[in-house]
């Protein structure tokens, strides 16, 4: 039988460090999408609170913290990142295991907004995009989920198949920002 190796989406690509900005791969976590059944949002929110300690986030918001986070992920969809989902959630929402589907990276450091400003058509500065805010948008031509998880710390999720492109685009932008600072 073939010997298979478990590889993370960004294996061999990260971490990268450019002029105080760091790009690293997030710790592997269970990811489950929750799509509430019609009219079940409120009940689902209560169950999520009881089981995992956070309410269902509204559009453009995330809830929870490192290790157990719920990120709004599109129309009528929330991604639960970290905990194994409680069975009772399945009474109110369609649950799909997406743990292997996404490359999750963390961009950190002073000027992380400047890096993303080169790639994403959104105003992600702290005044507009605060800790806990999230957005589905594009990074160049890739669909991504971007969440501010710290003062100068962003979580960026892209399709796993696009991991190399994601890292490439971010590294180019990091170098661009560093070069602009140096000049």
């Amino acid at each position: 039988m073939a010997e298979l190796l478990a590889k993370s989406p960004c294996e061999g690509l990260l971490p990268k460090e450019v002029d105080g900005l760091t790009l690293s791969e997030a710790k592997r976590a269970t990811m489950t999408s929750l799509s509430p059944y019609r009219g079940q949002e409120a009940v689902l929110s209560d169950v999520l609170k009881t089981e995992h300690g956070m309410a269902l986030p509204r559009p453009n918001r995330s809830a929870g913290k490192e290790g157990a986070r719920a990120v709004w992920f599109g129309q009528r969809q929330v991604m639960l990142i970290g905990p194994d989902p409680a069975v009772s959630l399945a009474d109110h929402a369609a649950l799909t295991d997406q743990s292997d589907a996404w490359a999750v990276v963390l961009l950190e450091g002073e000027g992380a907004e400047d890096v993303l400003a080169r790639l994403v058509p959104l105003d992600l500065r702290r005044e507009h995009f605060k800790k806990g805010h999230t957005a589905r948008s594009q990074l160049q031509h890739m669909m991504v989920s971007i969440t501010r998880v710290g003062d100068a710390r962003f979580q960026i999720m892209a399709f796993r198949s696009m991991a190399k492109t994601l890292v490439h685009e971010l590294e180019i932008a990091m170098k661009g920002v560093a070069a602009r600072r140096a000049s």
């Binding site: 559009p59 453009n60 129309q75 058509p121 959104l122 957005a135 589905r136 948008s137 594009q138």
Partner: peptide, 11 residues
Amino acid sequence: PVCGERDRREF
């Protein structure tokens, strides 16, 4: 109506 005002390229 869900996300707010966005750039045309997202559509």
